[in-house]
Amino acid sequence: MSTITEPETNDSGSPLDTEVPEKARKHALGDRIFSGLSFTAGITIMVALAGVFVFLFIEGYPGLSVDERFYRPKTDFWSYVGPLVFGTTYAAIIALVLAVPFAIGIALFISHYAPRRLAGPLGYVIDLLAAIPSVVFGLWGGRALADQMKPFLIWLEDTLGFLPFFGGPASVTGRTLLTAGVVLAIMILPIITAISREIFLQTPRLHEEAALALGATRWEMIRMAVFPYARSGMVSATMLGLGRALGETMAVAMVLSASPIVTLNIISSENPATIASNIASNYKEASPDRQAVLIATGLILFAFTFAVNFLARYVAGRSERRMAR
């Protein structure tokens, strides 16, 4: 006569699930593996950045105090690198002023205004701009855009010549800092647009519906619900675009005929040089001491970019903390 065995129970009388510990062990193992891979990736990035800094410091430190003939037309390193920092910052600011409004507008159109059938393909086209090499942008800017900019530069001089930015004389070649800024703006547009679009799409749907239910128009809903939520993401997107503009090399070098000067004029033939374009233009034929000077300017650019990104992270984090309150 067969006997029926009852399932094992614990102290409370409920049956024991023998599969749970095994699944828990598998999940814990997967968590440990993923955590280890993530930690390794983060450490690798930090080690790589530290390695870049160490290389720039070791190779560039001698360039801080070489013979003054290697700093021509200046006499020491800091007077040599100062105009380059100014030109780098100035070109990046021009690019941001041109790119950010368009990027935010395109991101809003894709996320909140465009029909779904149009939003997807338009987003793909904008993202594809990021895949175009810098050399292509530089060739287009130096050969095509520069010629198209010449009538506009003349108009700026005639109309707004009383401003220091457009004092002229307008360049006859079109290769100006303004042209380089337009090229940089197009290059950083996909980065800012893509990040802003994703942040806008993550806005809680209930916040948007609540604003609309209270009688807000679509623009009022965006201004009161979307922008406050996406503020930190927009700052981060802008700073990422700024980092790309600060470090861009070939496009600026192929557009500008630059010199180490400080001027606010962005439509004349005398343009301030950027650090990256100066390195690209002079490194190949440079002597060892001259190479050390150029690497030292690269160290300054590294430190400047790091400081900008650190400041951007602080601003974004402060915005997030304010939203959490």
Rank of each mutant, 00 (worst) to 15 (best):
residue 32 R to C: 08
residue 43 I to W: 04
residue 46 M to F: 10
residue 24 A to P: 00
residue 20 V to K: 13
residue 42 G to D: 01
residue 43 I to K: 04
residue 21 P to R: 09
residue 24 A to Y: 02
residue 66 V to Y: 02
residue 23 K to P: 00
residue 62 P to Y: 04
residue 28 A to H: 08
residue 51 G to T: 06
residue 48 A to T: 14
residue 52 V to K: 02
residue 49 L to V: 14
residue 74 K to H: 14
residue 18 T to N: 09
residue 29 L to S: 13
residue 20 V to T: 15
residue 46 M to N: 04
residue 65 S to N: 13
residue 67 D to M: 04
residue 58 I to M: 11
residue 46 M to P: 00
residue 62 P to Q: 08
residue 63 G to N: 03
residue 22 E to K: 14
residue 22 E to P: 00
residue 22 E to H: 11
residue 29 L to Y: 09
residue 21 P to C: 05
residue 40 T to A: 13
residue 51 G to P: 01
residue 32 R to H: 11
residue 20 V to N: 01
residue 53 F to E: 05
residue 62 P to I: 02
residue 34 F to T: 15
residue 34 F to S: 14
residue 36 G to Q: 10
residue 29 L to E: 14
residue 47 V to D: 04
residue 67 D to H: 10
residue 31 D to N: 12
residue 36 G to E: 02
residue 53 F to T: 12
residue 18 T to S: 11
residue 34 F to E: 12
residue 57 F to W: 09
residue 33 I to Q: 09
residue 32 R to F: 08
residue 28 A to G: 07
residue 23 K to T: 11
residue 37 L to C: 13
residue 33 I to S: 06
residue 54 V to F: 13
residue 18 T to M: 07
residue 49 L to C: 14
residue 70 F to M: 01
residue 54 V to H: 06
residue 75 T to R: 12
residue 38 S to C: 08
residue 75 T to K: 12
residue 24 A to F: 04
residue 19 E to K: 14
residue 56 L to R: 08
residue 40 T to I: 09
residue 36 G to A: 12
residue 32 R to Y: 09
residue 71 Y to Q: 01
residue 60 G to I: 03
residue 44 T to S: 10
residue 63 G to Y: 01
residue 53 F to Y: 14
residue 43 I to N: 03
residue 66 V to S: 03
residue 44 T to A: 11
residue 53 F to M: 12
residue 61 Y to D: 01
residue 66 V to M: 02
residue 68 E to W: 04
residue 44 T to L: 04
residue 63 G to K: 02
residue 58 I to L: 13
residue 71 Y to F: 03
residue 76 D to H: 09
residue 58 I to A: 13
residue 60 G to W: 02
residue 28 A to E: 14
residue 26 K to R: 15
residue 77 F to M: 06
residue 18 T to A: 13
residue 37 L to S: 12
residue 63 G to V: 00
residue 52 V to E: 01
residue 67 D to C: 04
residue 27 H to N: 14
residue 56 L to K: 10
residue 40 T to S: 08
residue 39 F to H: 07
residue 25 R to A: 15
residue 60 G to H: 05
residue 33 I to E: 06
residue 63 G to I: 00
residue 61 Y to R: 10
residue 31 D to Y: 06
residue 35 S to C: 03
residue 72 R to C: 00
residue 22 E to G: 03
residue 62 P to H: 07
residue 47 V to K: 07
residue 76 D to W: 03
residue 72 R to Q: 09
residue 77 F to S: 06
residue 29 L to P: 00
residue 76 D to S: 13
residue 72 R to V: 05
residue 44 T to G: 06
residue 18 T to E: 11
residue 50 A to P: 00
residue 65 S to K: 11
residue 77 F to I: 03
residue 68 E to R: 12
residue 42 G to P: 00
residue 61 Y to E: 02
residue 39 F to G: 07
residue 39 F to E: 03
residue 41 A to P: 00
residue 77 F to Q: 07
